[in-house]
Amino acid sequence: MMENFKVIDNYLMVRMPEEIDHHKSSYISENADKFIVQEKVDHVVFDFEDTKFMDSSGIGIILGRYKKISCFGGKVFAINADNRIRHLLMISGLHKIVEIME
């Protein structure tokens, strides 16, 4: 599971799992926070390539990490998000704080 977290330069890359729900969310949040503190990354990139299901727990993960890094000028990115995930980010207003990249 730890191979889902990778630091490249000052970016933390998080490969999101196939299903993102409350059951999986604390593991992702806790580990991402460890990297943010220990590796002093500035930005976080969430990669949704493998993700086939997400509920509001995924929104909580992104929002929580954004709150942690934005006060130091950090940014949050979403890559490989399909239409479904983009839609979820839209209706929760997260598209205003997360940069959604192709």
Partner: peptide
Amino acid sequence: EPLFTTKPELNRSGMGFPFMEA
């Protein structure tokens, strides 16, 4: 209400009911 949560410490987004509605 959207974004209202009693458990922000658990990384809850407050989007549960809004998602059900949507």
